[in-house]
Amino acid sequence: MSVKTPSKLEKIMAAGHFGVTSECGPPRGCNPEVIPHKAGFIKDYVDAINVTDNQTAMTRMCSLAACIKLKLMGVEPVLQMVCRDRNRIALQSDILGAAAFGINNMLCLSGDHQSFGDCRQGQNVYDIDSMQLLQTVRLMRDEGKFLGGGDLDGRPRMFVGAAENPFADPFEIRVPRLAKKIAAGAEFIQTQCIYNLDKFELWVKQARERGLTEKVYIMAGVTPMKSVGMAKYMKNRVPGMDVPDELIKRMSGVAKEKQAGEGVKICIETIQRLKEVPGVKGFHIMAIEWEEKVPEIVKGAGLYPRPVVD
């Protein structure tokens, strides 16, 4: 896959290295220190940092502003954009704004339904869906066109990504859905948190058999568990999450004060196993409100130091 954008993340994976990303959730307020503080822990251990877009539909500082904060501190952001809150005018407009600040990575998402968040009575937009958002960015980047047909004055040079959940239902369309996202323009994929490794490996194998792993960089998503309580919560309460019972058993088998350490250990073991899976090109480490653990995970998994590219 040839390099098409100035994205560092793209260059690193194109050069054959594992890409490593992590994420920062913007604050529930306008405190300008939160993002730099979180990013400070991880910036030297990852290639780019995703900034979530009002995740779980809880209103937060906007992803674009937080990405600009990162950019200003010399960190490469991945702008997450959901289709829940903005129509096609606003989405295109934000893409241009991001590009104007040198943001070169975007992740196109549907977004969690607003009923999970703090504005349950609000409308959702869903003017377009995440696949159509992928098409939109690619149209703007590759053709230099707006959706309305007009010409752009300067193309947004975005490395375009999508999310994929190998564990959601119906399972038989998980690979066709990946194919569809690639056809829509996805160049990298960040997956849902992986705990059921066998199922994930089956999904990658099927993707490989269709030649999809040659067309897209699959970044395996991992999230360290802080406690057995978190593991149970993820299993029972988070839609589309597949947490095997053995994992809960393993977490319950260690003393409470050692569970966090065990969670980190599991996370490192997961990455080490998945590094061997052909078709896995990187890792997306989502240490939710636990950013300070990212360096330990990256080092433990043998992904440090990060490669340097032009």
Partner: peptide
């Protein structure tokens, strides 16, 4: 619930 045109979101579980 999201009037998606191109397939289910990641939240579809057991139908």
């Amino acid at each position: 619930a999201k009037r998606l045109m191109n397939g289910p979101c990641g939240g579809s579980t057991n139908g």
